[in-house]
Nucleic acid binder design. Structure first.
Lengths: 215, 215
DNA sequence: AACTGGATTGACCGATCGGTCAGCTTTTAG
DNA sequence: CTAAAAGCTGACCGATCGGTCAATCCAGTT
């Protein structure tokens, strides 16, 4: 009620909350919901366990807050499309923005993967609601493009899953990618090369001719 | 005495070991190493906790045994190739066998994913050794094919990751796939359609002309 | 100086964790 | 048959789990 209007409400509060969120995202992503312990999160944040619970409320609330933050990032990426758009542009932008999300928020991506791996107990509703609707609306446009001869008549849903999986892979399986390529981290140019590769193969593979991707 | 006329060496032993392995694979895949509890495994197997430990020895031993079983399945899939082989045949067989593994052993695939998600603490050596060698040998052949004009000059390692991720997705993200497609399980014809889709898009996307994939 | 309301944390709770072990039952060997 | 071996499991152990709480701390305000 009696909110201090103009200045900073709580200087240290935001800092600690941010510390906790980042630490929790890391631990939940690595060990899943059950495997994560508040003690481990507290140590990663450099705070006592009680302080983590003071800000987070409970383990469940903390986990849900992290999922919501990640789904907001995800939703911010999903803009609408129309039949009159250029398939090449739309699908390339789709691949690039998904890859950018994977790259900018690898922990969040892995958190999402861990949630799905354990059967999506907290995201069932989102998957069967919002996300399904979004996929179906895209699928309809893809089919219209195919009918107009702008791309091959591939199943749009499998295509969307292909793009999701191929990009998501570089967050979820980072340990494998780094181990096999003998790196300690993927550089910006690596992400650039991978994104270009995926755009090229997927667009060509679906018979989408792009005037912007020369070669 | 009059129990079995069949000459099995250990009747109940194999049965219980099998029960435990299947139950453990399910629980480890869902909740990761730390999140899995022996109690949960025991309940899934329908045995008392002590009995699980009697056969498994320890949680770690059980987990390692499951990883080894899965890596054996994986290795059984990896046959050698030569420059003189047909790229279309080899890569299509690659996609199909990887998809068959995903389909026949989804729990094992998810177990592998959970292991990689937590930073591959038990599989580091395998990834940086055997598997890296295998990828590099394949990569060399792919490059030779490209030099001979049999396929586009794409980076072979990104291509291998594309195939792995696109197929692995249908085990690891099964909950998402089922939620979005409004199914309770993927049917055999679904797997058939997805596999055909992936072969078609990836082969075409890499500029590999196959005489067997008509249309 | 006294007051105050949020921030902080050590101590503690019952539940569950992985693992041990003594003792029971069942199977096998002689 | 008996005895030894193997299979099995309830009871229990110290450690850790998520969570609570009372006590303390601290920056403003009066």
């Amino acid at each position: 009620m009696t909110t201090t209007s103009t200045p900073e409400i709580t200087p240290a509060r935001r800092r600690n909350q941010s510390l906790i969120l980042e630490a929790a995202e890391q631990v939940f992503a690595r060990h899943g919901y059950r495997g994560a312990s508040i003690q481990a999160i507290a140590e990663a944040a450099g705070l006592p366990k009680s302080n983590v619970l003071y800000y987070a409320g409970s383990k469940r609330e903390l986990y849900v807050a992290l999922l919501e933050r990640m789904m907001n990032r995800w939703n911010a990426m999903l803009d609408d499309i129309s039949v009159d758009d250029d398939p090449a542009e739309v699908i390339e932008a789709f691949i690039r923005s998904k890859m950018a999300l994977t790259r900018s928020h690898p922990q969040g991506s892995r958190l999402f993967a861990a949630e799905i791996l354990q059967g999506a107990p907290f995201l069932q509703e989102y998957l069967r609601g919002e996300l399904r609707d979004w996929v179906e609306s895209r699928a309809r446009v893809f089919k219209q493009w195919a009918a107009r001869g702008l791309m091959d008549a591939v199943d749009p849903v499998w295509l969307i899953f292909l793009i999701w999986s191929a990009t998501q892979h570089y967050a979820d399986f980072e340990a494998q990618v780094l181990g096999i390529t003998d790196r300690t981290a993927l550089a910006g140019e690596d992400y650039q090369a991978i994104t270009d590769f995926l755009c090229r193969v997927i667009l060509k593979g679906c018979g989408i001719v792009s005037q912007r991707l020369s070669e």
